[in-house]
Amino acid sequence: MLILWLLACATSPPRLATVPGCTAYAGDEDLLTACVIRSVLPLENPFLAMPACDTLPAPHRAECRGRWVNAESGFPSLTREVLLSACDGQPDCAFDALDARPAGTYADQVAACEALAGRYVDDCAGHAAQRLLEAHPTDAAIRAALQAPHADRLRMMLPTYMAVAGRTHCPDIGPTTAACDGEVAQEILRRNPNATQVQP
């Protein structure tokens, strides 16, 4: 009976092996994760930070790595490859790293989004589209970008961009040009209700 007592009720929850300074939190995965994340955020060296994250159970390990990438992406010395390697294949982390270190061209960035951002590929491509439009692309560059995969967000943003840029027409983007022009007109009116008509 005494043995049963000891086994059934008197045992504490298992304590997880952890990094120094976090032993007090080892009885609870959420607390332990918060402690380990707190300990790795100031570490710029991934070879110090990743082993600490990897002491956590799987889902928390991914969170820890993602938080490190998010925090450290502010340091320009860490390359895109280092950040992506720390992500260890997690789509949201990769999306964050790709955002922090975008490729030189829109097409390359969308290709990277497609390869690494998993279910967030459209969000990732959307951010690429936003960056493209902020760089005042030529009409030819817009047309080329619209031919690339995952161009839905770019297509959605284009009329607003045109209106903000003071243009009343979209570039010639094929059969949807007229529809795009109509949306530009609506956007101009929305931004300036006193304008009664947008001249073609």
Binding site: P42, G66, N70, A71, Y120, D123
Partner: peptide
């Protein structure tokens, strides 16, 4: 140091 990651989580639509 913890706020940046927290803000990303609560404000990112995806």
């Amino acid at each position: 140091e913890s706020q940046r990651g927290c803000l990303r989580r609560v404000t990112s639509p995806h």
